[in-house]
Design a protein around this nucleic acid. Structure first.
Lengths: 225, 225
DNA sequence: ACATAATCAATAGTATTACTATTAAATTTG
DNA sequence: CAAATTTAATAGTAATACTATTGATTATGT
């Protein structure tokens, strides 16, 4: 998989940047180091000034690429879902059974990647941790409608709708496929966070993939007639 | 029935305020207007300066009650879960069937209150909307472990554990009661938000209580052997 | 080749924010 | 009624997000 996907470019809506960060060395440095920095110190403490110091460029230069740190976060999260869609399509391509494809999908959502891949200067592992901790902040805002109009969540919605199709294959009459899916995705992220910080809100198990198992069981029982 | 009935005052951990806002008129004004203001303009835009202007008190006076706006948010959310526990105990008290009690619990979590109640100067309806949009920000922080040690999430955990007991009554062998519950609670909040702003991530239905219905069905199917 | 246009990053800001040090006033206590 | 304590107000600081402007670099057209 590494070889197949390593140099694929993820399409990002043009409203999510001022200048395409993939078009210059500075842009790539901004992406590369912002992922490292946000994962390390959190989005609240992350500032363009600190990032500028890290990459030895002035704060203002970063504003040539992103008009705010919120836009940068939206870019990264959109990239994440673009990347996840690629993975989804690839890894479910040759599975005939819809149930097995759903199972695989939930595993992709829930499980951390074992090897640390770098794609487009982005550390997948670190970006996954950013999505867990910070992604809800990108839509739980008063600007959500504006951001939505500008296409900030398109990649996320597209990812969701792909798996919704699988659910409909299993049971075309099921009334809540989108609800079920957004519940699973946001829930899976939450459980990882709770396991680490608020264990009384989850049920940590010995097996590595218990989150995926829980949500797979939940989904299949819910969907079946 | 129990001590909750006698005590209408919700108990809040002492680490969640500098001075008890219930101990003075200014404190009560801070609580009352902060709920109104956060619901209206969102937690990001909310500042102690704006609140001070609204209640005609200087910004610094508010710092006598809360050391930061994050602490104030933590206080409000903790109050919410204290209040929700009170409701839970009260409204499930005379229901014999564990399944019916679970159903009622999920309804309490999911459904908006019809009448707008004011308790301890707090608008329940507005606070519910704050919890939907802002509560995840109070734990998705780098300070989560510190806040947890100081008891910021005690009321939430206590609320969860009460319903976990109901689930165990239904099926004592079920392995994931806490996971299921935190999934339902956070999911129910999310679906309300998505229905309003990102409808492609949910499945809006005509009935008022479809969120409760979805999660009740999900829960019962998951729990049953 | 060379003038023109476009793009680039750097400097030096501004406005706003969260938060604090200090003091004056009010209240309580002995 | 004087001393001690609690109260809120003033006037800040430091850090933040973000911007206006300029000079340097690169690309383009004839």
């Amino acid at each position: 998989m590494n070889n197949l996907l390593a140099n694929i470019k993820i399409a990002i809506n043009e409203n999510l940047f001022v200048k395409d960060p993939n078009s210059s060395d500075l842009g790539k440095k901004i992406i590369h180091h912002s992922v490292i920095m946000i994962e390390e110190i959190g989005f609240e403490a992350f500032t363009f000034r600190k990032l500028g110091q890290k990459i030895d460029s002035p704060e203002a230069s970063i504003y040539r690429y992103f008009e705010s740190k919120n836009q940068l976060l939206a870019y990264l999260i959109s990239w994440y879902w673009g990347w996840m869609e690629y993975r989804l399509v690839f890894e479910t391509a040759n599975i005939a059974s819809a149930e097995k494809r759903l199972e695989k999908s939930i595993a992709i959502i829930s499980n951390e990647m074992k090897e640390n891949m770098i794609v487009d200067d982005i550390s997948i592992k670190k970006l996954h941790r950013i999505v867990i901790c910070e992604s809800s902040k990108s839509y739980l805002t008063k600007d959500v409608d504006k951001a939505n109009k500008e296409g900030a969540y398109l990649n996320y919605k597209q990812f969701v709708s792909r798996i919704v199709l699988i659910i409909k294959e299993i049971n075309s009459g099921y009334k809540y496929p989108n609800m079920l899916l957004s519940t699973i995705i946001e829930g899976a992220h939450l459980q990882v966070f709770f396991a680490e910080h608020l264990p009384r809100l989850t049920n940590v198990q010995k097996t590595e993939d218990y989150v995926a198992k829980f949500y797979t069981e939940l989904a299949l029982k819910a969907i079946k007639k």
